[in-house]
């Protein structure tokens, strides 16, 4: 059973069939009925291994850009800064890291002025000592699939 789950997770990530009945196509590969596949997929979604099944959009092609922003912030208002950032739809990843630059987040935007406005707003938090905007100059790899 563990083997089947592993194989299924691999197909779901690397070889998802684009068809009217994807669960049937997957089932054919694994020797299972579509219903059995669907049951396992639901299970993996519920226990949290699968975050989402859907499409990954190339943001540049729909008019968006994104950047990584690093913040050096004191403990006094760190929670407030984090809470504020988490409330923004444009912030998709936000991490506390063990460095003097302790808060790192990604921000996607259409217009550069959105980044400027955000940095200006962050500077108003009293514990924020410094901010770096670190836009990508060249993408080398993006592939968060695991075998």
């Amino acid at each position: 059973m563990q083997e089947i789950r592993k194989k299924l997770l691999e197909i779901l990530q690397f070889d998802f069939p684009i068809s009217v009945e994807p669960w049937r196509d997957i089932g054919d590969k694994l020797g299972m009925s579509p219903g059995e596949v669907l049951k396992l997929v639901r299970e993996m979604k519920e226990n949290g291994i699968i975050r989402r099944i859907g499409g990954i959009i190339n943001k540049e092609k729909v008019g968006y850009r994104s950047t990584l922003i690093a913040v050096k912030a004191g403990a006094e208002c760190l929670d407030g800064v984090a809470e504020y950032l988490n409330s923004l739809v444009a912030v998709t990843h936000n991490y506390l890291r063990d460095d003097e630059w302790n808060l790192w987040f990604t921000f996607n935007y259409v217009d550069e002025s959105e980044v400027e406005d955000l940095i200006e707003k962050l500077s108003t938090f009293p514990c924020v000592e410094d901010i770096m905007n670190l836009p990508s100059e060249r993408m080398v790899k993006i592939d968060a699939r695991f075998r």
Partner: peptide, 29 residues
């Protein structure tokens, strides 16, 4: 090396479904 101490947020991005309100919220602040 900057180790992850805590994942504060990790969500799937929203581009097509982003409403005008969200856009305004990002901008104005």
């Amino acid at each position: 090396i900057l180790r992850t101490v805590k994942e504060l947020k990790k969500t799937s991005p929203v581009y097509l479904k982003r409403g005008k309100e969200d856009y305004e919220k990002n901008r104005k602040i």
